[in-house]
Design a protein around this nucleic acid. Structure first.
Lengths: 341, 341
DNA sequence: CTGAAAGCGCTTACAG
DNA sequence: CTGAAAGCGCTTACAG
């Protein structure tokens, strides 16, 4: 009541139409003068819309000291992307790194106590937890999440944003084939993750389209991590002699490169390698890593936009996006000439 | 009022002492059964303590498409560190990436409208903005922030966490000297940033301690970015012939490495290089970059702990931390033998 | 166009 | 130990 009225102030602050410009201006001046800022909690409690979304990076791994560290390189562009987009819509973002089961309880609480009005999950999350959230009607978007293990009902009630892993893997493998390679190995990610399966399928399809027979000895399990790529490559080199290796992600390609060099081969002269994701490191790796770029930034923008739309209009907000993917040609693959082969 | 009383519930939820175990247990059961979760805003409004802190990454740069991208590699470990620590104290973190002036207005609003009860700033922020926040009594921690330009009053009312840049630079330079180098160049960061100045001073001191005369031609200005390191190195190589270069950060060292190789030199045979920060890339760079590790994770833990302590006990919370720094020896420096020199 | 009133869902002294 | 009451600072129909 700093001059004029009271609920009028509310109308001004919320920019309602039925306020004449004169009073509006006056109120605004008084507000400015006194440095008045409405109390966020009070607004929320009284029914204003909650403009906070959650960003949950789930990563079960930790480094030796128990720090949540591996999270960084892959998630990083996604994080800033989400924050950036959300801010543009006037939304704030509450960030969480979830590692242990305890963390996920905190995540749920943030939904339940209405601190946030929706959330984005990236990483390998537990189905049961997100499923509970979805079942309760919370707005949830899942990044790089498969459907096969999901409840039908859940799929219909959440937003899913995926990269086009299948075509990316196809492109990568095709690229190697076009370069003249025939003995093309593949190191997979975690077999329980959608992207792993899709990338494996794309690889197989490219091979079969080129009439190259699939050789089980050329496929080795990895785990998305540097060490996994290293181990898998050591194993691979023992049981077969590929001229090219397609890794399910860049981290493993980089780990694999070390194994390749330790075995006395050079890249790309002896063995060509190609990754997936295009993490920052790949550009600066020696040799610079040819890879498939994951448009994490675009994915973050889509996730945020769709989530906010869902928050604003209650019913029926399910959606499924497939974001296209791009081959980034660098220096880790070479053309096979007949002389060499 | 789901069975027993009402304000008793509040007492149970908030774990007050004056509740007998029997009623407590009963209430808890009912809560569990009905899946009751207190509304966060209502609690806040009614006076509960606000357990949200802000994390503000300020970075004025953007990439070609206007994305806030450069933020990632340096901040990344700090971000997860802050989230992690905060969660451990039962705090939530609201993350912001601030680039444009508009963003900083949003940041201020988050303080004013009491969404958060304190905030951590990392990056090159505008003094005026943080100063305003500090003057109004908000709890603020500043990372890698100098005092010289700051208001005395501000310094006394905020928390500052710095790395020991001076000794780090001293160690780096000393290391080069011990390796037999005498012509040691230095590429600086932004001259208006504390870390730049301190690192420059450490460099100078190590030189003078070793009775090596300072050569102005050996010092070139950079800007903390890859391209800056590249440009600075080109310039440097034109005007002098160092056997070693100490870069004010890793990004510039990596940019500089490219320039060095383009000029026909190899690292470390012809020129040794050493960086500062130990970003993730440095380990995987070829040759692996010798550098000074910035304990960002420790710094984040200190920042969070101190901030939360400040939030819990109002008065007089100013503090200044200097976190020690460590030399990470890798393969980008070589010992100078008399033959070569 | 603009007040007065009720109410959002809690917490916190205050009595009992 | 535990109710009843007031109040946190807003917004939103409801009258005028």
């Amino acid at each position: 009541l700093a001059g004029v009225s009271r609920s009028t102030v509310s109308r001004v602050v919320n920019d309602y139409p039925n306020v004449p410009d004169s009073t509006k201006k006056h109120v605004l001046e008084v507000i400015e003068k006194h440095g008045y800022v409405p109390h966020a909690s009070a607004r929320l409690l009284a029914g204003a819309e909650n403009k906070i979304i959650g960003l949950f990076m789930v990563d079960k791994k930790r480094d030796a000291e128990g720090r949540k560290v591996s999270t960084s390189s892959y998630f990083s562009p996604f994080i800033t992307g989400v924050i950036d987009s959300a801010n543009e819509y006037g939304f704030r973002v509450l960030a969480y790194a979830v590692c242990k089961q305890d963390d996920i309880e905190n995540v749920k609480r943030v939904f339940y106590d209405k601190t946030i009005s929706g959330g984005i999950f990236i990483g390998q999350q537990n189905d049961k937890d997100t499923s509970e959230l979805i079942a309760r009607g919370y707005k949830v978007v899942l990044i790089d999440k498969g459907f096969e293990n999901m409840d039908k009902k859940d799929i219909k009630n959440c937003i899913i944003v995926n990269a086009d892993n299948y075509n990316g893997a196809y492109k990568a493998t095709k690229y190697l084939i076009d370069l003249g390679h025939r003995k093309i190995a593949h190191v997979t990610g975690h077999l329980n993750q959608l992207s792993t399966i899709e990338r494996l399928e794309g690889y197989k399809k490219a091979l079969s389209d080129a009439n190259i027979e699939l050789d089980a000895a050329q496929i080795v399990r990895g785990n998305f991590m540097r060490e996994g790529g290293y181990e898998a490559t050591k194993k691979l080199l023992l049981q077969s002699s590929p001229t090219a290796i397609f890794y399910c992600n860049d981290s493993m390609a980089i780990g694999g490169a070390q194994a390749i060099e330790e075995e006395g081969y050079t890249i790309p002269e002896d063995i060509s390698i190609i990754g997936f994701d295009d993490i920052e490191l790949s550009r600066y790796f020696r040799p610079p890593l040819t890879t498939i770029r994951l448009p994490l930034w675009d994915m973050s923008a889509i996730a945020v936009r769709t989530l906010i739309a869902a928050i604003k209009s209650e019913p029926d907000f399910s959606a499924h996006y497939m974001v296209p993917v791009e081959l980034i040609e660098r220096k880790s693959c070479r053309r096979l000439t007949n002389i060499g082969e």
